[in-house]
Design a protein around this nucleic acid. Structure first.
Lengths: 161, 161, 161, 161
DNA sequence: TTTT
DNA sequence: TTTT
């Protein structure tokens, strides 16, 4: 269906360092969780309130995997653009579970570092829009692009991330 | 945290007519599921492939609830903008479950009908940007804006929608 | 600068059929204008008002050019995603002029037909995500990707489109 | 037309401190310009290239005006969401000119500070989502919400900002 | 110049 | 005119 759009945009901070796994084909898959939060003043009590939302981000785009691995760490502030995808998996008891993730695939995915570049200066040869000039990353959708279920750390319980 | 963004944009079709429930305070809560899909040609086999993704949409914004109730039905094509929110609930066995939804709250939420207006012409007095000129909808976040758990149809099983 | 974002999203109708020109390198450049509109009820008079905004869209992405040429025409409803770009040009008197356009370049650009497929069914072999599997379009930024000034129809006057 | 979307999202840096003017009705109108930039490696020469784009941002939303006045200054990094609007004006010679701006009106507009809060901590009583709980800003579209032409600094020449 |  |  051509007239379809599935797009998520987040600005938030990483809760932990990114994790890299590999597909069976050897392609990197980087994942992390980021927090977004809203704050407002309660009309009734006048109290200041804040609500934090956690999002699971999974990167299949090879160039963005590299960026994430090199420059992101716990606490990094990022802009992330991807698509919503709900994945079905089984817990230890074999019961179906569902997890919704923000997926950065080859097309449409984007990732921007919003921190001041305190720590590492991007390597100008490998970073940024280079990916855009020389697209050579693996196809995230064909083959075994998704990690094998056994590789997931979440199989031990019912927590969906 | 002011520098935070949580935004989802979807264009897709409703899988069923919208459902309306009420909060304890009497405010409407409209929900439906929409499908987005991607198609591509498999590089290896040359086959045309399509993958459909289903999203749960929940509307707390009163004006958008009215629009949804009046103009949306199974098959309607819509643009939806909201925020990602993961809700925790318990299944019948009392085990925690998580469901991620696209929430259209009072601010930031948007809903556009993309169909040709075959069936019902929008009432110019009640529809569209009127909401924008006279904001009087309930506060989606204070009080019992979220439906009581018992009211949810998903408590009987582990399916997250 | 990595931490930068420049993105526009429009849903509207084409005012005219798309126009195709060619760069000196022979790459297609498709352009059209689309209208978006807002309506609201005047708080004071109660009158219904509408305001239409016109946007210039320019497509350098070769695959999206093809889609535009084949499926878009005057009146078509589209979703367009691109970046904002202000182009400087000279009018006949040699005075500088500026025009702001929504540019669909190779990356980040998107175009979706939102009409019911009344007229032409997309050719499943050439349309849609095929572009995504076999990226081979020309680089919109290097070389003479922008049309030569003499080819522009707007040089005769000061109207920026 | 309900099924219409006009939305711009930018992340960039302010080129100058924001300027505040007033409508005839006394409502604030804050404007500034922000730069976004892209960088890439030239495929032919291997050179690193960068292209900067400047955008005019105009805020009519009263709450966002306050945020801009209090926290933004030259060099600030911001996320801005608004709509594209092309304004017609006359230069000194009485010739029509057009300027395209990113307008943050009452609805749909958003503004987020992305800098580390080095200088001023947001006042928790006046900042952030308070605007969202107590909407009382002026209607940006009715009356003389746009600044009178004479007040614009750009009338002396043909530069559209 | 589109559309509802 | 910003920033990396």
């Amino acid at each position: 269906m051509s007239g379809s759009l599935n797009q998520v945009q987040l600005i938030g901070h990483l809760g932990q360092d990114p994790e890299t796994r590999r597909t069976q084909g050897g392609d990197p898959v980087v994942s992390f969780r980021i927090a977004t939060s809203e704050s407002w003043k309660d009309k009734a009590t006048g109290d200041r309130k804040e609500q934090t939302e956690w999002h699971s981000v999974v990167i299949f785009n090879e160039a963005l995997c590299r960026v994430a691995e090199q420059y992101l760490k716990k606490g990094s502030k990022v802009f992330v653009q991807g698509k919503l995808q709900t994945r079905k998996w089984q817990n230890q008891a074999g019961v179906d579970r569902y997890s919704t993730e923000v997926v950065l695939a080859r097309f449409g995915g984007d990732l921007k570092l919003l921190d001041k570049a305190e720590r590492a200066a991007p390597d100008p040869d490998n970073y940024g829009q280079t990916r855009i000039r020389e697209p050579s990353y693996a196809d995230a959708r064909s083959g075994a692009a998704r990690p094998a279920p056994a590789a997931r750390p979440d199989l031990d319980d019912d927590i969906p991330f």
